[in-house]
Amino acid sequence: MITRFWAECAMALTTMIFGLGIVWGALDFGIGWDSSGPQPGAFPFYTGMLVALASLGTIVVTTARRFAGNDLLGEIFLDAERARRVASFILPVIGFVVLSATLGMYVATVLYLVFTMRFQGGYGWLPTLATGFGAALAFYFALEKFFQIGLLKGPLERFLGF
């Protein structure tokens, strides 16, 4: 199992890579001084360095604590039960985002709500469909009609002539 110690280190490593990525990106724009003051890359360069160094700091501190026998760091970060609960929430969310990008947000809203209510929540078809279509219609009228903001549309809306 993944313990808190490894989770801490993995996160710190990720932020370190992010920091170094910023440093690398900043180098393209010059990190020194020119006629108009500090070059555009200077500020990101130093913030990137700061992130990388602070991440290194976290790794060092965490490792030191681990060897000093800190119990908290030996705890399990995410047990199977919790991981299952998070996954059952976030996987449909990812599905929703994919569907939004491909089929448009209204269709995605209906499909996502139907999936979570009917197949995860165990509700009957009637309340499920009512909630799904009700939510989609509510968004349609509130956003497109009232606030004049269009959402992502897909093939269905094109077919219906929106």
Binding site: L113, T116, G121, T131, L151
Partner: peptide, 18 residues
């Protein structure tokens, strides 16, 4: 919460898009 949660998710993503 199995109804409220997903609705909040939809609101968040629609909000992000707007």
């Amino acid at each position: 919460f199995s109804i409220v949660g997903p609705v909040i998710v939809v609101v968040c993503f629609i909000g992000a898009f707007t």
